[in-house]
Design a protein around this nucleic acid. Structure first.
Lengths: 125, 125
DNA sequence: CGTATTTTGACAACCATTTTCGTTTTCGCG
DNA sequence: CGCGAAAACGAAAATGGTTGTCAAAATACG
């Protein structure tokens, strides 16, 4: 683990929120580092590969990263009118996906789940 | 609703899967249409605004769209090596998704689930 | 030290998506 | 119909996050 990569990890850990690569790059530069944007991307990719950070995509396609201290895997309930998203989780689905994989002899099973609906507020109008 | 927009909606309805704008554009052109890529994007945006299609982002940031009807509902277990897909279904997830929607006051709840893994044959090699 | 390997960063390339803008089609109405 | 306004269209250019390239710099190792 190089010093630069460590710096990216720390910058990410400094906030519990999801941060974009561009934000992290700006923050590091603002803090005096001479790091390059390319390196930030590479560091984030490496961290994500090793499972140390969670990655997801915002609605406009930007990748955002978060330090992953709780290994929290969750899904989203998205309003199809206003795009508000609620985080949801479900041991139920996790178990179901794993069972399905087993049943058909699949290994290394992962899954993606997205739930859509119209939120309470948008339903009223 | 213009003819072109209607064509996009039909192309999308032709498959129950999520399709990208680029795929739809290619399919329409292959079918002899003189439609432009710009128009495909505009049509998808309009359809998504009016709630007729669901949109989500793939892991590599591409937007994918799906006609929003609830018929013939099932999911896929896809091998990430050879892409073989097994159809699976699960009252479990259906119920879970519905519950999640209810719990947060969402109406008209739909969902999408994709399960990935390495199939038995590919695991061996 | 000296060489091999890895990491870095400026810059160019990529590619899905959006914007621009001039042209074409559709619509409303007499 | 005819005609003008408004909307839709499409080609090309712009945008912007992300990835590839490659030579230079840092680091590892004998």
């Amino acid at each position: 683990m190089s010093a630069r990569r460590e710096a990216v990890r720390e910058a990410l850990s400094a906030s519990p929120e999801f941060r974009s690569a561009q934000e992290l790059y700006a923050a590091l530069r603002a803090g005096g580092s001479k790091i390059g944007l390319t390196t930030v991307y590479r560091a984030l990719q490496a961290l994500s590969d090793s499972g140390e950070v969670d990655v997801l995509r915002t609605d406009d396609g930007e990748a955002v990263y978060r330090a992953c201290d709780t290994e929290s895997h969750h899904h989203h309930l998205v309003c199809r009118v206003c795009s508000t998203a609620v985080e949801i989780e479900g041991p139920t689905v996790e178990r179901w996906a794993a069972e399905m994989g087993d049943k058909h002899g699949f290994t290394g099973v992962t899954h993606t789940v997205e739930v859509f609906g119209t939120c309470a507020r948008c339903s009223r109008s």
